[in-house]
Write a protein that binds this DNA or RNA. Structure first.
Lengths: 188, 188
DNA sequence: CGCGACGTTGATTTGCCTCAACGATTGTGG
DNA sequence: CCACAATCGTTGAGGCAAATCAACGTCGCG
């Protein structure tokens, strides 16, 4: 497991073994069973979560009471409620495991301390955040412009493995389509 | 002008005067007339742009040949084509001044060097990127869920000054509505 | 076994787009 | 300084993508 994380970290910035050890000493590891909540709506999100294995979704409840899924995250992805984490406000989203999921947890205060002692770590997080921004902008631009059918095709191309692991109505939610209409689309 | 930027920088991280001077020595200043292009689609975006005064839009051309506006930026905002900047790929978007606009330009290579000599600057950019991510996610979540009418109301509340400065059909484009339909909405 | 979770189907409605045409305003060259 | 062209907002008719609502079939699980 440590090897996996180390490899991931070194993809963007090179850390020495002692730096990795220092970072690791601040991480907590936790296992979430299927349907368990990593974070509940309304709570302050004080952590960043790194997925070792498994699958989670983040979602919020819209004004009509429907769940809206904003993100799926798997192995080697970071999740958090960014707005809550940065502004220390109650989180609008919940994060929930869809399978048994292994997660590494880093606390905000610990992270800030690590940024000071290991500036390279701050660099890593700058880069990670930039990548998240690009991905989010991409979803924004592409999905607003595309018709439902094309969004579904795009999703299949980008995340083929998710089709197997995620129930269809959740994919519909992520794509902002009703389950009924997605079912219709799939016939063709 | 220098005071304005210094004040902005110090909102997130405190820099010494000598650090500010070092940063400033790497910045170029440029004035763009109305309708002038800061960046053209297809070019590699090697800079980040900081708006001193004025107003720009970023937009791309969709598959039907229509302009889609993804962002407006004013005083104290950063703009760039993030994907092009990070990956060094041709930019999908153009950036254009909608008014006479004063811009500070920082080159990517210079910025990377500054990150090494002034780690606090990297911190500033991490924070800026986080804020951009939050804003982008917000647009994502809210706009996908809202009907056109609500998006327009939301826009008016968040950016009341833009209404005066930006032609209506550009606001329509930003909100992913046709100008005709926005006109219809405004009647109520 | 029985219940809840999930996918499908069909009928109806609606939000929004498309296309075409028409004023009002601004700007520009002769 | 006027004439003509762009640019911009509005209006209306018609059409389609996608939502809503309700009902039903199927599977897996406690």
């Amino acid at each position: 497991m440590k090897e996996q994380v180390k490899k991931y970290f070194n993809r963007y910035v090179e850390f020495s073994d002692s730096e990795i050890d220092e970072i690791f000493s601040k991480l907590r590891q936790k296992t979430f069973q299927k349907k368990a909540y990593v974070l509940r709506e309304g709570g302050i999100c004080t952590d960043r979560y790194f997925i070792i294995s498994g699958l989670v979704r983040s979602f919020y409840i819209d004004h009509k009471g429907n769940e809206k899924i904003t993100q799926f995250a798997i192995q080697n992805w970071w999740v958090t409620s960014m707005e809550s984490f940065i502004k220390k406000t109650p989180s609008a989203i919940s994060i929930q495991a869809l399978e048994k999921t292994e997660i590494l947890i880093i606390d905000k205060d610990e992270l800030e301390k690590l940024f000071l002692s290991i500036p390279k770590l701050e660099r890593l997080f700058r880069i990670i955040t930039e990548n998240m921004l690009i991905a989010t902008q991409r979803k924004n631009d592409i999905y607003l412009q595309m018709k439902s059918k094309n969004r579904y095709d795009d999703f299949i191309n980008h995340f083929p493995d998710f089709i197997q692991r995620v129930p269809q109505y959740m994919i519909a939610s992520y794509l902002e389509i009703t389950p009924e209409y997605l079912s219709e689309l799939r016939k063709s």
